[in-house]
Design a protein around this nucleic acid. Structure first.
Lengths: 135, 135
DNA sequence: ATTAGAATGAGAACCATTCTTATTTCAATC
DNA sequence: GATTGAAATAAGAATGGTTCTCATTCTAAT
């Protein structure tokens, strides 16, 4: 298991966080996780997001609004995807990628790597707009 | 001028912020702006980033680290571009886009819009890696 | 069972950002 | 150039999401 590989324990609180994230279906804020997991302390949630992040289990999204959002890593949750974010309420949903888009991204990354300086290891794409309920 | 169109004045402080951003050459944090603009108060800088943002002059980047970063809007600074961010130090640089990439993005956006729900108005792409000095 | 080390929970502390308010500046008019 | 009312500034207080502290509880391997 990933946590054990990182020298950590798979505790009740961490189980609760991972299963809440899986049940959520979209990147969740700490507030959402606390609401979905009765008995989970805020300090424990924040601390474990760091631990789970270091173990490669969850990904932290630097949000558009003031709340950080977390989701299971692509390795655990399914396949590579991008995000659609609402500029009004901050909602973030997953959206699939397409081969054409990924090919174009790969090409851009190759160009930048060759231009020197940065060593690119991944990418993050957000499609920005307004969700159904905010329109 | 954009500020006047928004009912605001082009004051000394705002001039200082805009020219500091232009001189910086890459998205800057408030701390960097304060260091580059002697006499600029922090509260004034924060307040004016909001005003300049509402007027479409600056864009706020929800950073990878704990600091918000600001840059001149594409309309003022040049052409459409994306960002390269360092996972270690948080540095953000601009990088151009390519016609192929933009075409693939446009296609993806069309698919998502047709799938209903969101109305997409823009996109944000970050290529993630490590900068030269952090490698 | 025991035990040593790690995790938890409650609240305090932190710090980037926002708000408050008295003072100053702006720009338009006289 | 002086006046004036509205908007901007600056300094510090306040806010709030996140992180830290530490005494207690749990974990897992002996």
């Amino acid at each position: 298991m990933l946590l054990a590989a990182d020298g950590q324990k798979y505790t009740t609180a961490r189980r609760a966080i991972v299963s809440a994230l899986a049940a959520m279906g979209h990147p969740a804020t700490i507030a959402e996780l606390l609401a979905a997991s009765p008995g989970l302390a805020a300090s424990t949630a924040y601390r474990n997001m760091t631990v789970l992040g270091a173990a490669g289990i969850v990904i932290r999204l630097g949000g558009t609004d003031e709340f950080a959002r977390f989701e299971l890593s692509e390795e655990l949750s399914g396949q590579h995807h991008h995000h659609v974010v609402c500029t009004d309420c901050g909602l973030v949903l997953d959206t699939g990628s397409s081969p054409g888009l990924e090919a174009a991204l790969t090409e851009s990354i190759r160009d930048i790597t060759q231009a020197g300086g940065f060593e690119i290891t991944g990418h993050r794409l957000e499609l920005v707009g307004r969700c159904g309920s905010c329109q």
